[in-house]
């Protein structure tokens, strides 16, 4: 897959998997790091297969309401791509790569770098989980004195 094309589909896939828009995902500054992490750990071949499968689901979603079911029923159940997609969600939310399941490593190979680790200080700080829980990354983006006394944000 051509580089620019790859990045486009990576961003679209990330949006569908995380529930966060491309604008917010770009704002984390982590798009290129995470794509590189994926290519490094599961290799370009599997990365591109994931993106290709997703792009098919996307292209087939003519009415804009079949993508979610497509991901659930095809991508997430795929023995090769499902665990990688789930790892990508954890990467975006928590900023860490988590080791792939034992069965996956047995079937599809174990790779250097496939162990639990934080990608970078920024990947931790920009983890989506902190926004999801309406807090802030512990140890960063401090909201200021006394803010913990405010009512929580409800929408």
């Amino acid at each position: 897959m051509e580089k620019q094309e790859q990045r486009k589909w990576f961003l679209r896939l990330s949006e569908a998997l995380t529930g966060y828009g491309q604008f917010q995902l770009e704002g984390t500054g982590n798009v290129d790091d995470f794509l590189a992490t994926l290519e490094e750990i599961v290799k370009p071949d599997i990365t591109n297969r994931l993106l290709l499968e997703f792009s098919k689901l996307w292209e087939n979603d003519k009415d804009g309401n079949t993508l979610e079911a497509g991901i659930r029923n095809h991508l997430m159940t795929d023995p090769l791509l499902g665990p990688v997609a789930r790892n990508l969600i954890k990467l975006w939310y928590l900023g860490s790569w988590y080791q792939l399941p034992a069965l996956w490593r047995e079937n599809f190979g174990s790779h250097a770098g496939d162990y639990d680790h934080v990608i970078s200080p920024r990947s931790y700080v920009e983890g989506l989980v902190w926004d999801a829980i309406k807090a802030h990354p512990q140890g960063a983006k401090q909201p200021g004195f006394g803010t913990w006394a405010f009512p929580p944000e409800v929408d």
Partner: peptide
């Protein structure tokens, strides 16, 4: 969060909410 993703199979807006 890991449980939500790996065990309950959540993703996208559903996971977030």
């Amino acid at each position: 969060l890991i449980q939500s993703v790996d065990e309950y199979g959540r993703f996208g807006k559903n996971l977030r909410e």
